[in-house]
Design a protein around this nucleic acid. Structure first.
Length: 308
DNA sequence: GTGCAGGTCAGCT
DNA sequence: AGCTGACCTGCA
């Protein structure tokens, strides 16, 4: 019955429709009708993305060379954008989060976190942008990371003139990144990561970014950490947010805290390799989702203790 | 002034 | 292999 409805609507060619998300796709616009698994605040503030801005009435998002404004209303969320197909994929609207959350609900430890961040979705972001962004993120704070990425895009990215959105800047392409000097990176405020970034970009010219897609996760990590500026944590982030591999679990200061508060039976563990192994053993193919629910919950409730 | 922020890397045992 | 300290810089 429902599939008949989908086919009918698709046949009429009026709108795109998806049985899981229940959203409409129109020219330069996506309307999210079912908000159970879509909350733009949850999505943007769970730590996976840096190029966004809270503009009061709406959120502004720039990804690669595309831009969107996201308006939240009581019964629907409206995405006004340069390319509805780009953002349908970006927000991963074809993935059924009800099913994912149902599978994760077997873990009592995730209960509050999933309730709190129930609208989280893992974005499908640009690979190159993820590499550069998460190299900058190392031992850094989010505001400064965002500033650096913004400065780099506005100075070295392609300026795009949109009637609907005005002028904005795409994230620099590899060709444009190759022209950025160490001093340029320092001017963007990335600090000592400038050296790593220049080296990394040089290394990129010898590699096809797509090769990591086909590799099993552990093998991909072993290759990635050979690159400048990339350690185990950044490798996990890139694989999760750039390659959509869900069997990784980025372990940072927050996750270390969470692990020792809610997962560890014994004394405090600071070895992140062990923490990661134990967490991926628990959450396996859904590790990436679990990580985002936990990270968002803990960061938003940073002053509370033992609240899971 | 001091400490910390989504870690990485070199230099040790 | 596993551990430790140094490390840009802006903000509380």
């Amino acid at each position: 019955m429902l599939s008949f409805l989908v086919l009918t609507i698709e046949f009429l060619g009026v709108i795109g429709y998806n049985i899981y998300m229940e959203y409409l796709k129109q020219k330069n616009k996506i309307i999210i009708k079912n908000l159970n698994n879509f909350n733009i605040k949850h999505i943007l503030e769970c730590g996976q993305v840096f190029r966004y801005e809270n503009c009061g009435d709406y959120y502004l998002v720039i990804s690669d060379s595309q831009i969107a404004r996201i308006f939240s209303y009581a019964n629907e969320t409206v995405i006004e954008c340069t390319d509805e197909n780009y953002f349908e994929n970006y927000f991963d609207l074809k993935t059924d989060y009800s099913h994912i959350k149902q599978q994760l609900s077997q873990f009592e430890v995730l209960k509050n976190a999933m309730e709190y961040g129930g609208g989280i979705r893992i974005l499908r972001q640009d690979k190159l942008e993820m590499f550069i962004s998460f190299i900058i993120s190392a031992n850094n704070n989010i505001k400064r990371i965002q500033n650096s990425i913004k400065k780099l895009s506005e100075k070295f990215g392609t300026k795009i003139n949109s009637k609907q959105f005005g002028d904005y800047y795409a994230f620099p392409t590899l060709e444009q990144l190759n022209k950025i000097t160490e001093q340029d990176f320092l001017d963007a405020g990335v600090g000592y990561r400038a050296v790593q970034l220049v080296k990394f970009i040089k290394q990129l010219n010898e590699i096809d970014l797509e090769v990591f897609s086909a590799l099993p996760t552990e093998k991909a990590i072993n290759e990635l950490i050979k690159l400048s500026g990339i350690g185990p944590k950044v490798a996990d982030c890139v694989l999760l947010f750039g390659y959509y591999k869900m069997d990784v679990f980025p372990v940072d200061t927050w996750i270390e805290k969470i692990y020792n508060n809610y997962f560890s039976q014994n004394a405090q563990i600071s070895n992140r390799t062990i923490i990661r192994k134990n967490l991926t053993d628990i959450f396996t193919k859904l590790s990436g989702y679990a990580q985002q629910y936990l990270f968002y919950y803990e960061r938003q409730n940073k002053n509370s203790k033992k609240s899971l």
